[in-house]
Design a protein around this nucleic acid. Structure first.
Length: 737
DNA sequence: AGCACGCCGACT
DNA sequence: GTCGGCGTGCTC
């Protein structure tokens, strides 16, 4: 006989082991935390749960993988599982990927996906009406109409039925009273109507049709691909990629259209509406919290089919995403420079790669990295060369400021002045573009030579006459405009040096006192609403001369604008930004494109001190290839992105001394990293100075991975925030896949 | 990221 | 004597 089974008799019944799972909480922790799953609760990876964290309750995501052992005494139970679709596996991999790549804590990346405070519980069902089949005795025409309309859907909201039937509410109420309807519960209404792919099919030209079918093929073929859609302004890019959107919708997939925040205008929404019979769901920082939650919820449920959004929309947990379009892919606004530093265009490519769907990058002036990827065959390249409806291209010319200088104390060359005079005499409009706010970038004392500098940044203070202030454009410091020199005390001997838009507007008022001159700048009082009004007024023709910063380069169509002048085209080329030439080219291309869409003869005049510069040559010739060929060769020669890997290391340190120390430590510990330097606050970008960052290290790394690994180790060693390093590895598409 | 704890200046 | 500044540390 065998002894009795020891397991049955010798031991106490094993205490049922506490089931634990990893939960990614919205904190800057390196790994998910462990939580106990209470009896009777079921969770799967991706479940959105509420967990206790210290004194509060937070929403987290159930993560896969094993965590390290955690003291059982610390283990606390999950509070509840939200009634919400779990995050797809590919979305969780995306969060991990972005965290790894940007060297930021996964919890913080996850937080971006959960940014919709109360959206985790289902929206409440609403009260609706359903036909009972009973026909009331008194059947008026209005009642007939309501009953006919009601046949079109199984259930209706009371107000929805009132609108659809075009009757007053009392008619519907009467029918309810007569027993024609019964009250039922119905699901919450969609936050946007479903798009209709066959609604407004556009008439596409031969070239456009061909481009559209190549994009549609990429969507139809399934699987990951990247296509660069390159087409000059007015070539119908949007209409072309709408066909890819239609294809993805036909396949039952969701679509995300990314736009730089500024380009999310009514006119884009109108065009989408005209094509699909309904607007897309909008996602950006200005969306009201309630709407935001409903959109988030309906995106996770797959009920919202198309989202048009700013970069943060990339972290929405779509149920079934099948296509991402990045419009204006070259726009620097896609790069987030605060907190988690990422480039939304590149992350969109990664998202497509991880979820295996196509990505389309669209631009009139593609970024260098996208052009390089296209020519190397990594990306497909689809071009649109013709301007739709053959709107005349502007006649572009350079004004050599050394040969035709403006009179002393002025900034507009006689050549441009004459052109402005002729333009307004014909009753047409002139646009003067200068990418510098305020009146003058520098104020100095004529007696002692004192320069007004920012006490924090050692940059020049910009004279803002309309506000009566001297302002620092880096840190936001401002002080009232003084009358006396603080150095020597002399009164009334301060002099403004160089032009800003305010000063150019003043020059126009002096030269053309009878013309209506409008100044457009983001810092003028009145905000967005006033700006929008002004833009409308200009489009209506209520201005002769417009002076503006780069905000005039975007969107908006001014039919009477037949002259565009770039006041100081070299401005952007001065600083040490490795993308200075590219940015200047893109900006000048955009701003000169403001002219010439009206069908009238139009001109663009570019004032420059370096007419031989490749950017100026390319702009004047109207041939972008001239610029791209030169710039790509130059980047290759100097090892700048996308050929060399440029990393911006942003050292968060209390003082310059500490930053220098960090730099020394970096040089020693990472000998493969070359060219580390500490740049003072004056050179560091505005975004960095607003936060707690003080210094920026630029280094060229031969390979990115070792640098990342080193920095990650350094971050773990040195606890945040003291001496911590935040890092952005600059655009490096080569390493994506 | 929140939130508590903790140690030094200007006030009822 | 307190109220309150934000530096440091912790959250399964």
């Amino acid at each position: 006989m065998h002894p009795p089974d020891s397991q049955l008799f010798d031991r106490d019944p094993a205490p049922s082991p506490v089931a634990t799972v990893r939960v990614l909480v919205p904190l800057p922790t390196e790994r998910p935390y462990s939580y106990a799953v209470p009896e009777g609760m079921t969770v799967v990876p991706g479940s959105i749960v509420q967990v206790p964290l210290g004194p509060r309750q937070v929403a987290g995501i159930v993560w896969d993988g094993d965590g390290d052992e955690v003291d059982p005494k610390k283990l606390r139970p999950i509070t509840q599982v939200f009634d919400c679709p779990p995050l797809a596996e590919s979305m969780r991999r995306f969060i991990d990927w972005v965290a790894e790549y940007t060297i930021s804590p996964p919890g913080l990346v996850a937080r971006m996906a959960l940014r919709a405070p109360a959206a985790f519980d289902p929206e409440p069902w609403i009260e609706g009406l359903r036909l009972t089949g009973a026909v009331p005795e008194r059947l008026t025409a209005a009642r007939r109409r309501v009953l006919d309309t009601a046949e079109d859907a199984p259930s209706w909201s009371r107000l929805g039925l009132v609108h659809a039937a075009g009757v007053s509410a009392s008619v519907v109420d009467g029918l309810i009273g007569a027993g024609a309807f019964e009250r039922v519960r119905m699901p919450p209404p969609p936050v946007v109507a479903a798009p209709d792919v066959s609604y407004g099919r556009a008439e596409l030209s031969g070239e456009q049709g061909e481009a559209a079918s190549r994009l549609a093929d990429a969507v139809a073929n399934d699987g990951f691909s990247v296509t660069l859609l390159e087409g000059v302004t007015g070539s119908g890019k949007t209409e072309v990629y709408f066909e890819a959107v239609a294809k993805a919708l036909e396949k039952g997939r969701q679509v995300l259209i990314l736009l730089p925040e500024i380009a999310l205008t009514q006119s884009f929404l109108d065009r989408f509406h005209a094509r699909f019979g309904a607007p897309p769901a909008e996602w950006h920082s200005d969306i009201a919290p309630r709407t935001r939650e409903r959109i988030w919820r309906q995106v996770t449920e797959g009920r919202v089919r198309v989202v048009a959004g700013a970069r943060s929309a990339l972290f929405l947990p779509f149920e079934n995403l099948g296509l991402v379009i990045v419009d204006e892919e070259h726009d620097p606004a896609y790069k987030q420079e605060e907190r988690i530093i990422y480039h939304a265009r590149d992350m969109a490519v990664v998202r497509g790669s991880l979820s295996d769907f196509p990505v389309i990058l669209a631009s009139a002036t593609p970024s260098i990295e996208s052009r390089v990827n296209a020519s190397s065959g990594r990306y497909a390249h689809v071009r649109l060369s013709g301007r739709y409806a053959e709107a005349a291209l502007p006649d572009l010319g350079l004004v050599d400021m050394r040969r035709s200088p403006p009179p002393r104390g002025r900034f507009i060359s006689p050549v441009l002045t004459t052109a402005i005079g002729e333009t307004i005499a014909r009753g047409e409009q002139a646009l003067l573009f200068l990418n510098r706010r305020g009146y003058a970038p520098l104020t100095l004392c004529r007696v002692c030579g004192h320069r007004f500098e920012c006490p924090n940044c050692s940059t020049w203070l910009v004279d803002h006459r309309l506000r009566g202030q001297l302002q620092c454009h880096h840190c936001g410091y401002s002080t009232p405009r003084p009358e006396a020199c603080p150095e020597c005390g002399t009164l009334d001997h301060l002099v403004a040096c160089g032009p800003g838009v305010e000063r150019v507007a003043e020059e126009m008022l002096e030269l053309f006192p009878d013309a209506r001159t409008i100044l457009l700048s983001s810092d003028l009082p009145g905000g967005t609403r006033r700006l929008r009004r002004e833009l409308e007024a200009i489009a209506e023709g209520d201005a002769d001369i417009v002076v503006g910063t780069q905000l005039v380069a975007k969107g908006h169509h001014f039919p009477k604008m037949t002259l565009v002048g770039a006041v100081d085209a070299d401005l952007g080329l001065q600083n040490g930004d490795p993308r200075a030439a590219e940015r200047t080219f893109q900006l000048l291309h955009q701003v000169t494109g403001r002219a010439g869409r009206s069908g009238r003869a139009s001109r663009g005049l570019i004032q420059t001190f370096q007419p031989e510069h490749p950017v100026m040559q390319a702009i004047a010739s109207g041939d972008p290839e001239l610029f791209y060929a030169r710039e790509i060769a130059e980047r290759q020669r100097s090892g700048l992105p996308p050929f060399g890997r440029l990393a911006s290391l942003i050292v968060s340190a209390g003082s310059r001394r500490e930053a220098e120390e960090q730099a020394r430590a970096l040089r020693q510990a990472a000998p493969t990293v070359e060219g580390i330097e500490v740049l003072g606050p004056a050179e560091a970008p505005l975004a960095l100075l607003r936060g707690r960052y003080r210094f920026r290290l630029l280094c060229q790394a031969p390979r990115k991975a070792p640098l990342q690994a080193y920095l990650r180790a350094m971050i773990r060693q040195a606890p945040r925030p003291r001496g911590s390093v935040d890092v952005a590895i600059d655009v490096d598409p080569q390493s994506f896949l």
